[in-house]
Amino acid sequence: MTVILDNLTVSYQRHPAVHHVSGSFVAGDATAIFGPNGAGKSTLLKAMIGALTPDSGQARLEGFARQDIAYLPQQSEIDRSLPVSVLDLVASGLWHRTGPFGKVGRAGLGQAMDALEQVGLADFAPRAISALSSGQFQRVLFARILLQDARLILLDEPFTAMDAKTTFDLLELVRRWKEEGRTIIAVLHDYEQVRAYFPHTLLLAREVVAWGRTEQVLTDANLKRAVDTAAHWQDRAAVCRVDGVNV
């Protein structure tokens, strides 16, 4: 049961966003993906769930089947103007049991209510998702992950623009998942959150700057290196003469 990145390169119109990334995530623990804007963090997650096709290399989720994976998208990728109720959205977390056509049923709706209760939004079940604040909506998305009951949880910027209380409550969920032995990989921007909750960190700037124990990765020297790499992105990316080797 491991998540292995094997020389992974993903690009948008031939501009690599993730460049020859190799390594493996520690199973049953929490890893933060940290790095400047445009470092390829979200791209990496999308490649891992198969929403983007790599140019070369691969992300191998060994020992994880489809239904073992839960993914939290960035809020900007969700169209909240659609007339869908909170309960229905949470219930979509049962997809692996229902598929496109299957019935959610009373038991399923009960579980969805239960998940909403755990994120403190039980009273919001019948509301339209357009009527929620972004903090409340994030809680709803976490409730869906609870319902998915996945062993591998991928979170794309889960706490961006969240207030302190929401962030704290949701981080406690992450802590609980960690204790339950689930594998968590989260894109984060807050240094303190990473240090407090994530024992492992992948510092990414298109390429791996450092990957390992958080306290060894998030050093001043490494962070400076990540920022310096980002500063040179104006230039064309280096051409790789031999696949897999940076020249």
């Binding site: 769930i49 198969g50 993914y71 998208p73 659609l82 959205l89 979509s92 692996h96 229902t98």
Partner: peptide, 16 residues
């Protein structure tokens, strides 16, 4: 169901 989800949350649909 898949069509509504695809309008609402396409990346989630891909993830499952």
């Amino acid at each position: 169901r898949p069509m509504l989800l695809e309008s609402l949350d396409p990346v989630f649909l891909r993830s499952v």
